[in-house]
Nucleic acid binder design. Structure first.
Lengths: 255, 255
DNA sequence: CGTAGCCTTGACCGACGTCAATGATGGTGG
DNA sequence: CCACCATCATTGACGTCGGTCAAGGCTACG
């Protein structure tokens, strides 16, 4: 689903051990294992028994589900620092699948431990609530958008959303800047990211064809460029205009 | 937003005092005040400073927001037992408004108390996480639906969703069956609810006109009836067919 | 050179929105 | 009891956004 920031765990009262400081993923009292995903590998799938909660460490993942008609609906992207699979906290089995958009590295915590720690450290629960609330804000925003706005606006908005979230993630989580895959952040001011149009389509509920059409329009307008390095954002203000951008949510700082 | 069920608070470990048992809304250590809303009154509005967290006691509320183009987008309904305004936990100001669909009664807890109690009783945080997760499931489900399905399916699905949630609320929360307003539950097997088409439209992102068209089709098909008492569900299986119903979420029991 | 991803483009069509007029209903006050 | 208004639902005409189908291009890669 893409929840946020274990860092706050430390930030928020709970004292941290030295080793936790060294490695923000090692939370005391919890098992902890890493796994590396190649592009389009799955840490878990719908219906799998939900044994772990994950945090993204590197790379980009996305969670999705198939609609009854068999279309893939992407629910959200997950940037480094985001949680994945929090459904495990409340359910036996996952109700969504996750796949890696680039090579990615996750950290897995067994649900049991996680739940236990929630009880032991209220700060952890508290963080969770915040993360979920933040996630929820993004989702409802998208819900509102998907419902009413024309495709161009949705797409522009989504591109901006991705930028803000990626930048936030990168700043909180500098290791993301790791150049291992190139779906990355700023070069010389302008932002770029590798994001196949099919992703955009499946997130926003549009057809690939139509996404293509609109992206070419955006390109013609000089708002973005596309290259093998991904989508480049050329004219931020232009994009914000098209998107009717008002910011993502109060707690996401603008850049 | 419409989160769920303080009852679990007691259910989930935290011992309860006698008076709490008598009145599930009186949580020890928290201030607590009630307010009654007439139809279409607002407990709070977007941008209001977020001072309270609410639980719905009677009646039906809905949370909404205006899109940039000025259309009202309803985010969710809130049934008795649902939380409202949990945004207050993470934000200074509300980002959505709430209005009563029928006469309604809310209980308000000051955020400060609420937060403090979250730290004091991990079970409370835990409940919150569950509530939010449940809410989230409904939202993502709707997101997926809104994105891809034809209007008829969305509407049918929504009607069923409402039914399940209302029944669940009524069973957990018998006081709901209170006959004070008639937007209520079962009569002799069939379910009915008062729900203006404009609501449905604004929840699902459709135009009122189109909702009307489709509802008439549903009526012609004998799936529902409409009367002054609200929408009557005549042919549940038929509806489920149209909706491609697969249940709302694992933890919502079917009826 | 062939194949596989991914993007583009045109022709066509249907679902759904908008506009505008018309009906039902029910509540209020004279 | 009726007149009036507000709210909500219906219906038709018409336009458009965006989906589907199908063909063709562009890298990238073995």
């Amino acid at each position: 689903m893409g929840w946020r920031i274990p860092d706050k765990l430390r930030e928020l009262g709970e004292q941290t051990t030295g080793s936790e400081m060294m490695n923000p993923f090692q939370l005391s009292g919890m098992e902890y294992s890493s796994l590396t995903l190649e592009k389009s590998e799955h840490p878990y799938r719908e219906r799998d028994s939900a044994e772990n909660v994950y945090i993204v460490r590197h790379g980009l993942c996305f969670s999705y589900r198939y609609s009854e008609e068999g279309r893939r609906q992407i629910i959200d992207l997950a940037f480094p620092g985001d949680f994945l699979g929090l459904e495990a906290l409340t359910q036996e089995h996952f109700v969504s699948s996750v796949s890696a958009l680039t090579r990615a590295e996750l950290v897995a915590y067994p649900v049991g431990d996680f739940t236990r720690q929630c009880y032991a450290k209220p700060a952890l629960s508290r963080v969770l609530v915040e993360c979920i609330a933040r996630e929820q804000a993004v989702l409802t925003k998208r819900l509102v958008g998907v419902a009413h706005s024309p495709a161009s606006q949705r797409i522009a908005h989504f591109l901006l959303e991705v930028r803000v979230r990626a930048l936030r993630s990168a700043s909180l989580h500098p290791m993301y800047t790791d150049e291992r895959d190139r779906s990355l952040v700023t070069a010389s001011g302008d932002f770029r990211i590798r994001l196949p149009q099919a992703m955009v389509a499946d997130i926003l509920g549009l057809s690939i064809v139509h996404v293509s059409r609109i992206m070419t329009r955006l390109k013609e307008g000089g708002l973005i460029k596309e290259a093998s390095t991904g989508i480049h954002y050329c004219d931020l203000d232009g994009l914000k205009g098209v998107a009717m951008w008002e910011g993502l949510a109060p707690w996401f700082d603008e850049t």
